[in-house]
């Protein structure tokens, strides 16, 4: 996407609403000053004025243009300060950047999604996009893991998805409490509880690095071919424009060539997890 003018200057967006998702995760509903559209899986650079900038993937439906959501986990300096924002605050937005999910390749397929923690943010946007084309999909299965039931985000999303005929969800927590009646254990164990029609399936993995690694291993074990496993790679980023070099994954710039890659594209690069 070509940009006119200054590639480093963000546009402004006003925080309309702040939603507490978990003790560490909040969703910010942003209203940008200009029309803004993104493809699911593309990311933005969000600026906290004078403080810092960090990459996030919008978690709302790509079909909605007037406002969009970003779901932010408290992870360090900038995100911690972002968590203090209240409605009315003004943020800077650059983007959207990168290469998102190739929805056209999911047509007529069964989509297995493995997600953990805050990795559900980009996945929620993907799910909304998939709901929009649900008649063209065989099946969508979401396997989601979080540390504790409290850390499980987007609770209403799961019942919404379960009401759609060809969508289903499974959840697990590492540490259950006495009210939890779903799975217990790391996210990858959920893959043992689903039927996969391998010849017609694609897999999407998005979550913390350990989950990405073991999730991918498990999918390979189950017989998924390398080129049908879609991974959202998280790297340090600064510019988002393929210039600053911070996000290098071997020869790739994750910000331009990704963040979504198939496993076969990156498996030979050093230090992928």
């Amino acid at each position: 996407m070509a940009v006119n003018g200054n590639i480093y200057r963000p546009m402004k967006a006003v925080v309309e609403k702040v939603i507490d998702e978990s003790p560490l995760i909040k969703t910010f509903v942003l209203v940008p000053e200009r029309a803004f559209s993104f493809k699911t899986g593309e990311f933005i650079e969000l600026t906290l004025d004078g403080i810092g900038e960090a990459p996030f993937t919008p978690s709302s439906s790509p079909l909605i243009k007037e406002r969009f959501d970003v779901t932010i986990m408290k992870a360090g300096y900038v995100t911690e300060l972002m968590h203090k924002l209240e409605p009315g605050a003004v943020l800077g937005v650059r983007g959207p950047y990168g290469r998102g999910y190739p929805l056209e390749k999911f047509i007529d397929k069964e989509v297995i999604i493995l997600s953990g923690g805050c990795g559900l943010a980009p996945i929620r946007s993907l799910l909304y996009a998939l709901i929009d084309i649900k008649d063209k999909l065989r099946k969508v299965t979401l396997c989601y893991g979080s540390k504790t039931p409290q850390d499980c985000i987007y609770k209403p999303l799961f019942s919404q998805l379960n009401q759609i005929d060809n969508f289903s969800t499974l959840r697990t927590v590492d540490f259950a409490d006495r009210y939890w009646d779903e799975h217990v254990g790391v996210a990858t164990v959920l893959l043992d509880h689903i039927d996969i029609d391998l010849p017609n399936a694609v897999a999407v993995v998005c979550g913390p690095p350990v989950m990405m690694k073991y999730g991918t291993m498990k999918l390979l074990e189950k017989g998924f071919p390398d080129h049908l496993i879609y991974l959202s790679m998280e790297k340090n980023m600064s510019c988002g424009l393929g210039k600053c070099g911070h996000c290098m994954l071997g020869g790739y710039f994750v910000c331009r060539d990704g963040p979504v890659f198939t496993y076969d594209e990156i498996k030979d690069q050093p230090h992928i997890w």
């Binding site: 600026t47 004025d49 004078g50 900038e53 510019c239 911070h246």
Partner: peptide, 11 residues
């Protein structure tokens, strides 16, 4: 050519 973007007030 690698660089870092550092934020200053006024976006």
């Amino acid at each position: 050519t690698c660089f870092l973007l550092i934020d200053r007030p006024g976006f």
